[in-house]
Design a protein around this nucleic acid. Structure first.
Lengths: 210, 210
DNA sequence: ACTAGATGTAAACGTTTGCTGACTTAGCCA
DNA sequence: TGGCTAAGTCAGCAAACGTTTACATCTAGT
C-alpha cells in the first residue's frame, strides 16, 4: 500500500476548498458513521467487523470505542440516523408523493455514497437496545403513513390501515435489500424512474387515496 | 439438565408408533437442517453459530462438518430446501391464487416449526456459492410469477413484468422478515386471513390479471 | 456372538473477534 | 516557544468462533 496523505477522502463532490484540520473529532465521527451505515446495510451487523469499518473510513479501530463506546453503540447511532431520514420522508411527504419519496429512498438520491439505508432497518444485532430503536422507527413511520389515509390511534377498524402501511414499508425494505445485498436483476439496475411506477401502483393498492 | 431419553423430539404430530433407530444418519441430517433453517432465517447467517444449531437439534457439533462439510455447506442445503418450496409455490399455483399462496408461506402453514422460510432468501453468507443459489431461486421464481401474466424471455416490453414480479417477491420477503426477525405489531400477529386481503390488492396492482 | 463399519462424543486447535491500556503526536493558547 | 489537552496509534488480551482429531459406542450382517 502506498502512503496516503493523512487527509482521508470524503464525499465532497463540489470542488470547494474545504478547510479541513488534520485532526477533527466530528469529522472522524462522521466518517465512521458513513462507513458503518454502508457496511451494516449491505452485509448485516454480525458479518461486519469493526476493523472493516475503520479501514473503510480510513481511521484507527480504537476510535470506534472512543466515539461510540462499542460496535453496538455505533450500530445504534446508524439506526438513529437512518430512522431520522425515514421519518422525515413518511412525515413530511404529502400522501400522493409517497411513491416518489420511497423510490428516491431506494434508489438513494441525495446523500453521498449512502446506499439503501432502508436495509439497515431489518439488520438486527441481537441487542435489545438496537431492536427497540428499530421497532420504534418502524412503528412511528408506519403510523405516519397510515395517518395520512385516515388512521387514528385506537380507532376501531382503522387497525387494518396500520397493517397495510407496514406492508408498504416491508415492500420498500424488501426491494432495497434485494437491490443492495443480493443483486437481483433487473431490480438492481432499475432507476428511480423505473421504480416509481410500480411503487405507485403498490402504494395506491395498499393505501387507497381517500 | 435432566438426562433425556436419547430419541430426540421430531415434528411427529400424528401418534404413529414410528419405529426409530437410536442412531439414524438421515434423521440426524434432517434435525440439523430444520434447526439451521429456523436459526438462519431468524438471526441471519453470521449471527448463528454452529453450536446454536447443534444444540437446537440436540446433536453434536461435529456432525455438522460430517454431514454438510461446513457451516457454509449447511447454509446452502437450507437455501436449496427453501428454494424448492418457493418454486413449487410460484410454479404450481394458478395465477389468481398467488396471494393466498404467498400468505400461506408467510404465515407458515404446513411444515412443522419452519417459520418464514422466505426470510432465508435474503440472508447472505458472503460466500459466492450461496449467493449464486439464492439468486437462481429468486430469478426462477420471479420468472414463473411473471410468465403467468404474459412475460416471455427476451420479449421487448415485457421486462417491466419481470421487475414487477420481483417486487412482489421483495414485498413477501420483507413482510416475512418484519414478522419473524423484527417483531413489528400488528404485522407480527396477523394471521393468514389478515394478510391475504392486502396481499391480493398488492399482487393485483403489480401484476394485473390479463 | 463377534466383528467391521457407521454413527456419535469430547476436547482441543488455530484464527478472528471486540475491546482496552499505555503510548505518541498534533493543535492551540499563554 | 513551551506545554497542556484533545486526537490518534499500537500491540495485545480474553473470549468465541469453525473445524479437526482421536476416541467411544451402536447397528447390522454373518
Amino acid at each position: 500500500m502506498t502512503a496516503e496523505p493523512p487527509v482521508p477522502a470524503t464525499g465532497n463532490t463540489t470542488g470547494e476548498p474545504v478547510q479541513r484540520r488534520r485532526r477533527d473529532a466530528t469529522e472522524t465521527r462522521q466518517l465512521l458513521l458513513n462507513a458503518a451505515r454502508q457496511r451494516f446495510a449491505r452485509d448485516g451487523y454480525a458479518a461486519t467487523t469493526v476493523r472493516d469499518i475503520a479501514d473503510d473510513a480510513g481511521v484507527n479501530v480504537a476510535l470506534i470505542s472512543r466515539y461510540f463506546t462499542s460496535k453496538e453503540g455505533l450500530f445504534e447511532a446508524c439506526l438513529r440516523a437512518a430512522g431520522d431520514e425515514l421519518r422525515r420522508t413518511t412525515g413530511q411527504t404529502p400522501a400522493d408523493r409517497v411513491p416518489e419519496a420511497i423510490a428516491g429512498h431506494i434508489a438513494d438520491l441525495g446523500a453521498a455514497g449512502l446506499s439503501s439505508q432502508l436495509s439497515l432497518l431489518l439488520r438486527s444485532s441481537g441487542d435489545a437496545g438496537a431492536d427497540e430503536i428499530r421497532r420504534g422507527v418502524l412503528i412511528r413511520s408506519s403510523e405516519q403513513l397510515a395517518a395520512a389515509r385516515g388512521w387514528r390511534p385506537g380507532e376501531p377498524g382503522s387497525e387494518q390501515l396500520l397493517l397495510r402501511a407496514q406492508m408498504v414499508l416491508a415492500a420498500g425494505i424488501g426491494v432495497a435489500v434485494l437491490r443492495s445485498s443480493i443483486q437481483l436483476e433487473p431490480l438492481s439496475s432499475a432507476t428511480q424512474q423505473d421504480l416509481v411506477g410500480p411503487l405507485r401502483d403498490l402504494v395506491d393498492a395498499l393505501l387507497p387515496p381517500r
